[in-house]
Nucleic acid binder design. Structure first.
Lengths: 127, 127
DNA sequence: GAGATAATGATAATGGTTATCATATTCTTT
DNA sequence: AAAGAATATGATAACCATTATCATTATCTC
């Protein structure tokens, strides 16, 4: 059973409001003025909890950093290799991306699911 | 200047030969029979070096694990959330993927490059 | 309000990766 | 082929983001 906490509400707000894709420590730092005795462990705990509940989405960037996205629908992201900023990409195609000023140097698509043998063993079928 | 080492050659072989997408520790364990006093640090050092040289490719999976791919051209990967196996995906479309027996539950596309402000500052332009 | 349950903050532990450094290997020069 | 310079190795320690632990505090139910 899930009980309310002010901290969780603040953490959810920090991710859901705004187009940024903050890391755990960025969420933590942004909330410290509002909640000075907030613990970093609480931030991690709730970010994981909220992503498990489907409220937010956890993203593993190709540079190894973990970031959180307030929208849970599946969409593409553009990661700046210089400053680390992550922005949403509306279209998948390079020409449209270039219109945003983003200079693409690479991309990585990772599909998750169950491989043939695991799907058989666990009796998981395509919808 | 790069000097030859038997260890580096073995590490490169372990990644380049075969369709597996091994992690650093998988490479380490697979080579220990051949090279009993191989150090894990040497494996990490050379995997990073080889990916910087463009010989292999470093992949950050959505489950947080790092894996290495012997082919450096840009292609899609399918990660089994049950056993962790990574396989190459020839086509991007779900119907073709389903033919391989893989049951897709999600996907993540991350494009890397320079955001507008960084591209301007560092004077990087689209080709 | 009392009791039960869950969440927090502080801290310690974990685990994968990177750095350090003395020794060993490779390469060049003679 | 030996010596010197440069690089790589193996072993170990350090790092750092994340997770686990646990006593205390807050929330919820009756």
């Amino acid at each position: 059973m899930l009980k309310y906490s002010k901290q969780r509400e603040l953490i959810e707000q920090a991710v859901v409001s705004g187009r940024a894709h903050p890391s755990a420590s960025e969420v933590y730092n942004s909330l410290r003025p509002l909640c000075p005795n907030l613990s970093l462990g609480t931030v991690y705990r709730n970010l994981t909890l909220l992503s498990e509940k489907g409220v937010i989405q956890k993203l593993h960037m190709p540079d190894g950093s973990d970031r959180f996205d307030g929208s849970t629908h599946n969409h593409a992201h553009a990661l700046c290799v210089s400053c680390g900023k992550v922005q949403d990409v509306g279209a998948l195609f390079e020409p449209e991306l270039a219109e945003t000023g983003f200079v693409m140097t690479g991309s990585q698509l990772v599909i998750t699911g169950f491989c043939e043998s695991c799907a058989e063993r666990e009796k998981i079928e395509n919808a």
